[in-house]
Amino acid sequence: MNTEQIAQRLVTLCREGKFEQAHDELYADNAVSIEPDGLPPGALGSVQGLAAIRDKGRQFQERTEAVHSMAVSEPLISGNWFCVTMTMDITMKQYGRMTMGEICVYHVHEGRIDREQFFYDVG
């Protein structure tokens, strides 16, 4: 798949809440996931490797009590890069209900996502 096809597939799977399937189908084994600096203690931080990315996703799901709504934008593509915005109205077990908004940036190498980086306000 090319970058545009991967971007469209990722958006489709995310909108359906199929994050694990997205990892299985679209990510490279050596992919990295980068979170912002300054996260509070115990937050899910940056990781390297598909197994670690899957584990981070599972931990996020375990910490989530309810997803009230989620919106994922259409991708913006430039060469091997694409980005989307994601907004979630969720209830976290530790923090209660909140709206989370972020910009998600992805890099594609040899037909797989090898880097994801998330930009959002910490705190």
Rank of each mutant, 00 (worst) to 15 (best):
M1K: 13
F118C: 07
I6V: 10
R63Q: 10
G38N: 03
R15W: 02
G111T: 12
F82C: 07
F119A: 05
C83V: 13
V11A: 03
E116F: 02
G49L: 06
Q48C: 04
H107L: 11
R112M: 00
A22V: 00
C83L: 11
Y27M: 10
E16G: 07
L50Q: 08
V122C: 04
M1I: 14
H68M: 02
P36E: 01
L13R: 09
W81H: 08
D121M: 07
S73M: 09
A43V: 12
P41Q: 05
D37I: 14
M1L: 15
W81A: 01
F119K: 03
T64G: 02
A7R: 05
R15P: 04
T12F: 06
A22N: 04
P36L: 02
L26W: 03
G111D: 10
Q94R: 11
Q59T: 06
G57L: 07
P75R: 07
F118H: 08
D37Y: 14
N80M: 01
M100C: 04
R58T: 08
E62H: 10
E25I: 09
L44I: 15
V108E: 01
Q117M: 14
M100F: 15
I53V: 12
K56V: 03
A31N: 09
G123W: 09
Q5K: 14
Q117V: 15
G96M: 10
I53P: 04
E16K: 11
L76V: 15
M98E: 00
V72D: 02
E62C: 04
D55P: 05
F82M: 05
